[in-house]
Amino acid sequence: MNDTAGPRRRVDVGRVAHRVAVALLVVYLVVPFLWMVVYSVYPSENLRSSPMSFAPTDLTLAKYGELFGDSGFVRSMTNSVVVGVATTVICMLLGSLAAYSISRFRFRGSQTLLLAMMTVQAIPAIVLAVPLFVLMRDFGLYDSLTGLVLTYAAFILPLVIWMMVSFFDSIPVNLERAARIDGCSHLGVLRRVVIPLSGPGFAATAIFAFITAWSDFFLAKILTGPNAETLPVRTAAFQGLFATDYTAAATAGVITALPVLALALVAQRWIVQGITEGAVKG
């Protein structure tokens, strides 16, 4: 299985089958998304005629231009970026602190705390919508980025802590002991020893937090109005009652997915490595 395919002849059949399977898998993974990209750069008439027409001369970025020229859409983009980044920073800051504390000190009840945090994950967002709305409004945070960031932080922190605990667990304690004896504070140890050592895991978790915040639809739909509207809400809205623009929906879909995709691709090394190092041992 593991790089151990010997130099046996009969492997060749398997090899071909394997390559075919991989090729099919790649097509399966990529083509649906590419189709949406195609949808966004051709006039809808081309795709609705039969047979479909893919004349290169019909290629157009008009919808992209239209969306980037729409101040509301651009605002929702900025909102999404701000919310995604802020949520990630808060989650990683507070999450790694808490995870370190749980991982290293295993105080009584820390397991219970961990479980309680997962319980939070089990709550359907639907039931929290009205009380969260009331909470946000009463603190003047309805339709504000701050409110959204706080909400996401609370939703995502438990998972971040869970993931970080398993990363920290896999780092040998001896190094920290040495640093402690050298007079390093706990915070110093966390900052200089533990987080650098869990680098890929840290990055993977951060990206996980970012993607979760970036993708949310339901809470954003309930907790935002015109000011703090995020990309997924805006994107879903292209499906209207009396005006549905599928080209715009596809374009907005591509725009919504691309930054995350780019991020994931740039960070793929850490993601794979990071996951190797911890999450799955939880």
Partner: peptide
């Protein structure tokens, strides 16, 4: 002060939430 156009399909949920929270906005 504010004229917001929301997607028809999202409005019912928005109203339900706002009204249940006795929102004055």
């Amino acid at each position: 002060r504010n004229y917001e156009m929301a997607n028809f399909n999202d409005l019912h949920d928005r109203f339900a939430t706002m009204f249940a929270g006795q929102d004055t906005s």
